[in-house]
Amino acid sequence: MRKRSPFTRTRITRGARAIAEALAKKGDARAMAMLGVLYQKGQGVTADLNKAADWYAQSAAKGNLGAEYSLGEIYLNGMLGDPDPERGRYWMEKAAKQGKPEAEHRMGLLAASETPPDWLEAAEWFNKAAEQGYADSQYNLGVLFAEGRGVEQNRIRAGEWFAKAAVKGHRDAALDYGIMVFRGDGVKKNEKVGAQWLLVSAKRGNPVAQNRVALLFATGRVFEANPIEAVKWHNLAREGGRSDAWLDEFVARLPEETRKAGEAKAQAFQPD
């Protein structure tokens, strides 16, 4: 199939803007929200966050869910200058109460960042988004169950939520679930399965998982001993800020060609 040129895409975007503007003038909330997106991203128009916010505000005033969320993000993140937590929270909560999982998750983060944190409210919001399959909330809810914050501590429930997020590709959830399975902590112990989840997390760029995988390859535990792979994952973990004195010594004792082979694989690494 022939690819469209950037010029063709630009014409399509400008056409969409013209249609949206015509509908917005008639009071169409979805068209107003679309104009907000176009001005925010600079698609078919010169990017202008103030105009984007204006269109989002008009759309949000009519109850458009996406516009409420976008407006909340703009104010909370201070995209127009200084953050405006009060206005940001107002619009974010409106979107969350209509069931938008991204907004529910953000409300959970806001509750967790209060001084002191409101863990009960955070858990309630994360649970709402997690039940809709939102991976970040599934992971955060797992953490709360693991630590007993806002909910009764329950390692089994923690493992269930970590597993759900891990299946969706959440690298931190894959790490925590892998450790639980490897150790038999709240779930049935299976070192082989646990190690595979650690590898999933490592391949997605988690430096702690990369360190654990390097140790497994270096010691030959679960995985067949492979010093080149050990060097690769150790280097990646170090680059990510996870040092390991034992692995430093292990790598230093290896033949130079083995070290170089591992280093080359680390340099060629691309996260999944």
Rank of each mutant, 00 (worst) to 15 (best):
A29N: 11
F126S: 00
L215A: 04
E102L: 07
A209V: 08
D272C: 03
K164Y: 05
W91P: 06
N140E: 06
G142L: 02
A52W: 00
K188D: 15
L198C: 07
A252G: 05
V193M: 10
N190M: 05
G240V: 05
D136H: 08
K188I: 12
Q267H: 06
D118H: 07
K25H: 12
L216K: 04
W233T: 03
K41V: 04
I179A: 12
A111D: 10
A112E: 07
E249R: 13
T13V: 10
W246T: 09
E104R: 04
G262T: 01
F162P: 00
H234V: 02
W161R: 04
K168V: 07
A264D: 10
I12Y: 10
G63I: 11
F217L: 06
V213Y: 00
R171C: 04
R259D: 09
K94V: 10
G42Q: 09
L198G: 02
N154D: 15
N211W: 08
W161T: 05
E257Y: 03
R87C: 09
G63Y: 13
A130W: 01
L65M: 13
K94N: 08
G184Y: 14
L236C: 03
F223Y: 14
N211F: 04
L199A: 00
L35R: 01
A24F: 03
G142K: 01
D82V: 06
N235H: 10
Q196R: 15
K203C: 02
I74M: 14
E104L: 05
F7T: 14
N127M: 09
A135T: 03
A123D: 01
A225Y: 10
E263C: 01
V213G: 00
V143Y: 00
N127G: 10
I156K: 14
A237T: 08
M34T: 12
A16S: 14
L35I: 09
L216C: 09
Y39K: 12
N64K: 07
L110V: 10
F162T: 01
A261K: 05
M32P: 11
F250H: 09
E147W: 03
A218C: 10
A230S: 12
L199Y: 01
D185M: 07
Q132V: 05
N127T: 13
K188T: 15
L199R: 01
A266I: 01
F223R: 02
A112K: 05
A135F: 06
I12F: 13
M92A: 11
V187S: 01
A29T: 10
S243F: 15
A29R: 11
A209L: 03
L175K: 03
P6A: 08
G108A: 07
Y69E: 06
V222I: 12
R17N: 13
D248E: 11
E249V: 13
R9Y: 07
G241V: 08
L38Q: 09
N190T: 04
L216I: 07
A174H: 03
I12K: 07
